Simulated scan of single mutants.
Amino acid sequence: MADTRNSIQVENVVASSSINQEVDLRALAEDLDAEFEPVQFPGLVYRTQNPSVAVLIFDSGKVVCTGAKSISDVHEAITDTVQTLRELEVDAPQSPPVNIQNIVAKADLQRRLNLNATAIALGLEAVEYEPEQFPGLVYRLDDPDITVLLFGSGKLIITGAQHRSESEAAFTNIQTQLSKLGLLEGGQREYPRNVQ
Rank of each mutant, 00 (worst) to 15 (best):
V45K: 14
E30C: 05
E22I: 01
V45R: 13
D3T: 05
A34L: 11
N20M: 09
V14F: 09
S52A: 12
V55G: 10
D3A: 03
L44W: 10
A15Q: 11
E22N: 14
V45F: 12
R26G: 00
N12G: 09
A15S: 15
L28Q: 05
L25S: 04
V39R: 15
R47S: 07
V55D: 08
V13F: 06
A27H: 08
V10L: 13
D24G: 01
V39D: 13
D33T: 14
A2H: 00
I19G: 11
E30Y: 07
V53N: 05
S7Y: 11
E30Q: 10
A34D: 14
S52F: 02
Q9F: 10
V45N: 06
E11L: 11
E35Q: 15
A29S: 15
T4E: 13
P42C: 04
M1D: 04
V13K: 06
L28R: 02
E37I: 02
R5C: 07
G43K: 03
F36I: 02
V10Y: 11
D24A: 05
I8G: 06
A15D: 14
N50Q: 10
E37L: 12
G43I: 06
R26P: 00
F41S: 09
I8E: 06
E11N: 13
N50G: 04
T48D: 06
V39H: 13
D33E: 15
Q9C: 10
P38C: 09
E37W: 02
I19N: 12
Y46Q: 04
M1R: 02
F36K: 02
R47V: 04
P51S: 07
A34M: 13
V13Y: 08
V14M: 09
A54T: 03
E22Q: 15
S16T: 14
I19P: 08
V55P: 12
S17D: 13
D24H: 05
Y46G: 04
A27E: 05
D24S: 01
E35L: 14
Q21R: 08
P38G: 12
D31V: 02
G43H: 02
S52W: 01
E11P: 00
A54F: 03
S16E: 10
N50E: 14
S16M: 04
A2Y: 00
V39I: 08
V39W: 08
V45L: 15
R47G: 05
V45C: 09
S7N: 14
A54H: 06
P38I: 01
S16Q: 08
D3L: 05
L28F: 03
S18H: 12
A29V: 03
G43W: 03
S7R: 07
A54R: 08
P51A: 09
Q40R: 09
